[in-house]
Deep mutational scan, measured.
Amino acid sequence: SRHTFEINGERWTVEGVSEELKEILRAAERASNDEAERLLRLALKLI
Rank of each mutant, 00 (worst) to 15 (best):
N33Y: 14
I47R: 00
I7Y: 05
I47F: 07
S18W: 09
E15V: 14
N33A: 13
E23K: 07
F5T: 00
I47G: 03
L21M: 11
A43N: 01
G16Y: 14
A27T: 09
E23N: 10
L46W: 10
L40I: 10
R11Q: 12
E10W: 09
E29K: 04
E20V: 12
E10K: 11
K45Q: 14
R11T: 14
V17W: 08
L25N: 00
E6K: 05
A27G: 06
E20W: 12
L39K: 01
L39V: 02
I24C: 03
R11S: 11
I7T: 02
E35P: 01
R41H: 10
I7N: 01
S1R: 03
E10G: 05
T4I: 09
L44P: 00
S1M: 12
H3T: 08
V17G: 09
R26Y: 09
I24T: 03
S18F: 09
R2I: 15
L40K: 04
A36H: 04
E10S: 08
R30S: 13
L25T: 00
L25W: 03
E19L: 06
T13L: 01
R38M: 12
L21V: 15
E23G: 09
A28Q: 02
L21W: 05
R41P: 00
E23L: 12
L21S: 04
F5V: 03
D34E: 15
N33T: 14
S1K: 12
W12T: 02
V17S: 06
I24W: 03
A28K: 01
V17I: 12
T13E: 07
R11P: 06
F5D: 00
W12Q: 01
H3I: 12
S32E: 11
E29W: 02
D34C: 11
E6C: 14
S18N: 09
L39M: 04
A31Q: 04
S32Q: 10
R2V: 15
R11L: 15
E20A: 10
I24G: 00
E23Y: 08
A27K: 13
G9V: 02
G16P: 05
N33R: 14
R41Q: 12
E19V: 08
K45T: 11
E6S: 05
S32F: 06
E37A: 11
T4M: 04
L46S: 05
T4A: 03
G9M: 03
E37G: 07
T4Q: 08
A43H: 02
V14Y: 08
K22C: 14
L21P: 01
N33F: 15
A36Y: 07
T13S: 09
V14M: 10
E6A: 02
W12E: 01
E37D: 12
F5H: 01
V17T: 05
T4G: 03
L44M: 11
A28V: 09
R2D: 10
G9I: 02
S32A: 11
E15H: 13
G9R: 01
I47W: 07
G9N: 04
A36V: 07
A27P: 00
V14S: 02
E29P: 01
N8S: 05
L25M: 09
E35L: 07
S1T: 15
A36N: 03
G16D: 11
I24P: 00
I24S: 01
I24A: 03
E29S: 07
I24K: 01
I47H: 06
L40Y: 12
E19S: 09
I24R: 01
H3L: 15
F5N: 01
N8L: 15
E20R: 06
K22P: 00
T4Y: 09
K22Q: 11
A27S: 09
E19P: 10
E19D: 10
T13Y: 11
A31L: 09
R30G: 14
E15T: 08
S1I: 15
K45D: 10
L42I: 12
D34F: 10
R2P: 11
N33E: 14
S18D: 09
E6V: 15
V17K: 03
A36W: 07
S32P: 01
E29C: 01
R38A: 12
W12C: 03
R26L: 14
L25H: 00
D34G: 14
R2M: 07
L39P: 00
R38D: 11
R41Y: 13
N33W: 15
I47T: 04
H3W: 13
E10T: 13
R11I: 15
E23F: 04
V17A: 15
S18A: 06
I7K: 01
A36E: 03
E20L: 08
E23R: 09
R26H: 14
A36K: 13
A31F: 04
A43Y: 12
G9L: 02
I24L: 12
R26F: 13
L42K: 09
S32I: 08
E29I: 05
E19F: 07
E15S: 12
F5E: 00
N8E: 04
R41I: 13
W12G: 00
T13M: 08
S1C: 12
A43L: 11
S1Q: 14
I47L: 13
E23M: 09
E6G: 01
N8Q: 07
A43F: 15
L42Y: 10
R11A: 08
E10L: 11
L44K: 04
I7F: 05
L40R: 03
R26K: 12
L39F: 07
L44S: 03
K22T: 12
L39R: 01
L25P: 00
S18R: 05
K45V: 07
A28R: 01
R26S: 13
R30E: 14
R26M: 14
T4H: 11
R11Y: 14
G16K: 07
R11V: 14
G16S: 10
L42N: 05
R30P: 02
A36C: 08
S1Y: 09
R38H: 08
E6D: 10
E37T: 10
G16R: 05
F5A: 00
E6I: 15
I24D: 00
E37C: 13
E35H: 04
A31R: 02
V17R: 02
K45P: 01
H3C: 13
A28H: 03
V17E: 05
V14R: 01
V17N: 05
G16T: 06
E23Q: 10
E19H: 08
F5S: 00
A27V: 07
R38G: 05
S32T: 14
K22E: 14
L46Q: 06
L42F: 11
A31G: 06
W12R: 00
R26I: 10
V17P: 13
L40G: 02
L40N: 01
V17C: 08
L39H: 02
W12N: 00
A27I: 08
A43D: 00
R41K: 13
L25G: 00
E35N: 04
E10F: 10
V14N: 02
H3G: 06
K45E: 13
A31P: 01
H3Q: 07
L46T: 04
V14W: 09
E20M: 12
S1P: 12
I7Q: 01
R41T: 14
S18Q: 04
I7W: 04
V17Y: 07
L21I: 15
I47E: 02
L42H: 11
E20G: 10
E35D: 06
A31I: 03
K45G: 10
E35M: 06
K45R: 10
N8M: 14
N8W: 06
E20H: 07
I7A: 02
R30K: 13
K45N: 09
R26Q: 11
E10Y: 08
G9P: 01
N8V: 03
H3Y: 15
A27N: 11
R2H: 14
K22H: 13
L39S: 01
G16F: 13
L42D: 05
E23S: 10
R30C: 11
S18C: 13
S32M: 09
V17D: 06
L39G: 00
D34T: 13
A31W: 04
E20K: 08
D34P: 14
K22S: 07
L40S: 01
E23H: 11
E35Y: 06
K45F: 12
E23D: 13
L39N: 00
T4R: 03
L21Q: 03
E29G: 04
N8R: 05
R38F: 08
L25V: 02
R26P: 00
V14G: 02
T13V: 15
L21R: 00
D34Q: 13
E20C: 11
L40W: 08
A36D: 01
N8A: 07
L44R: 06
L40F: 10
E15I: 15
K22D: 09
R30Q: 11
E23W: 07
I7S: 02
L40E: 01
L42P: 00
A28D: 01
V17Q: 06
S32K: 09
E37S: 07
R2G: 09
L25A: 00
L46N: 03
W12D: 01
G16I: 13
L42S: 06
L42A: 03
G9A: 03
V17F: 07
A27M: 13
L21E: 02
L42W: 09
R2C: 14
A43I: 12
L44G: 02
A43M: 06
V14H: 02
E15K: 04
K22Y: 15
A27Y: 05
E6R: 04
A27W: 10
V14K: 01
E10N: 08
S1V: 11
N8H: 06
R41C: 10
L44V: 10
G9Y: 03
W12S: 00
T13R: 04
V14P: 02
G16M: 08
L40Q: 02
I7R: 00
V14F: 15
S32H: 10
L39D: 00
E15M: 10
F5M: 02
T4S: 08
N33S: 15
F5Q: 00
I47P: 01
G9S: 02
N8Y: 06
E6N: 08
F5I: 05
W12L: 05
N33Q: 14
E15F: 10
E29R: 03
A28Y: 08
W12H: 04
R41W: 12
E29Y: 04
A43G: 02
T4E: 11
L44T: 03
R30T: 11
L44D: 02
A28W: 07
E6H: 11
R30W: 08
T13D: 06
R38Q: 10
A36P: 01
R41S: 14
A43C: 10
